[in-house]
């Protein structure tokens, strides 16, 4: 029997797979790029959901990882284009245009940053954790602004999309499907993760960390690994975003971006992994549609968010899929 939750998932998948064809058929190529943006932010929001929805860690600095992922691609492309050496690395490596270098670099850089920042900020909890993650993100934001080599405040043009043998990422439909595959792969990995023994400890951290410690868990380590994995996911999203925009600017890691990611998680359904896909779609579509009428489109977003938080605890996904959303 097909349950309500399964049918929601299947319909979602069908829509995601057919979107570019519908857009092309309707002669609206712009919709492909918008859908790609939704997928990329869905990866970032899903990665945040691992620590926010399952681990109870409210990070207000998650866009920092998005930024580091994006700058990884931007910087490698920049040096490859200029023929200059990448600083801080041994040898005279002049970067790369290959996506097989770019995306792993985005993931590696952001997980390394996640490890360091997690190590420092996970010593705090609650509002202090929110503040310290915010502070780190703002530090990175101003750090990138003050680096003229990489465009400073003006950002960095990315000259062409990453090169992957056999795939032409500059074709927007191809790029869309690459993003979709990565989203599904990340969802699968995250799903296994939260259902594993490790995931059990992570969920326990959210409910009663003291109890876990008293049972013999060194909870700090588990939270740190979850934080690092979440950073890696957002880094991947950042690498894709740099490709989509063919541009990287410091704005990508401004704290309001971190706020948007939290809104996506809440709107879509916290602690569901799939929910953030809906959250990303809802927020970006609202922005797209409403900003045509007014630049103060957030005025509409505010009440909607309020209603969702008050009346639909599992967000849009919970509203659609019902009780089972938690386990989906």
């Amino acid at each position: 029997m097909i349950t309500r939750i399964r049918s929601v998932q299947i319909v979602t998948l069908l829509i995601l797979f057919s979107l570019p064809f519908i857009a092309t058929a309707m002669n609206q190529p712009f919709w492909v790029d918008l859908s790609t943006r939704i997928l990329i932010y869905a990866i970032a929001a899903m990665s945040l959901d691992i620590i926010l929805g399952y681990g109870g860690m409210v990070s207000l600095g998650h866009a920092m990882f998005l930024g580091i992922g994006a700058y990884s691609v931007g910087i490698l492309t920049h040096h490859s284009f200029e023929g200059s050496a990448v600083p801080f690395l041994p040898g005279e490596w002049t970067g790369s245009m290959s996506g097989l270098v770019h995306l792993p670099a985005s993931i590696l850089a952001s997980s390394l940053l996640g490890l360091i920042i997690g190590l420092l900020s996970l010593r705090t909890v609650g509002v202090y954790f929110i503040m310290i993650t915010l502070a780190f993100a703002q530090m990175m934001f101003y750090f990138m602004i003050s680096l003229p080599t990489y465009g400073g405040e003006d950002g960095l043009n990315v000259w062409g999309r990453s090169e992957i043998p056999g795939l032409d990422l500059s074709d927007s439909v191809t790029f869309y499907f690459v993003c979709l595959m990565l989203l599904l792969a990340f969802w699968f990995i995250a799903r296994r993760l939260v259902d594993s023994r490790f995931g059990g400890v992570l969920r326990g951290c959210k409910q009663n960390e003291q109890r876990l410690k008293a049972l013999g868990y060194n909870t700090m380590r588990y939270k740190l690994i979850a934080f690092t994995i979440a950073g890696a996911g957002a880094g991947l999203a950042g690498g894709l975003l740099a490709n989509l925009n063919e541009f990287v600017g410091p704005g990508i890691m401004h704290w309001t971006k971190s706020g948007e990611l939290i809104v996506m998680v809440l709107l879509g359904g916290m602690g569901t992994l799939i929910g953030p896909i809906f959250g990303s779609a809802a927020l970006l579509l609202l922005e797209e549609i409403l900003s045509a009428y007014t630049e103060h489109w957030m005025i509409v977003l505010g009440p909607i968010l309020l209603l969702v938080v008050l009346f639909a605890r599992r967000g849009i996904y919970g509203f659609l899929a019902g009780e089972g959303a938690k386990d989906g």
Binding site: R192, L193, S196, R197, F198, V201, L215, G216, Y222
Partner: peptide, 14 residues
């Protein structure tokens, strides 16, 4: 699970 070694098992369904 707390007594069964570490819980850095990321894949199997608990």
């Amino acid at each position: 699970q707390a007594t069964d070694g570490h819980s850095f098992r990321f894949w199997g369904k608990a």
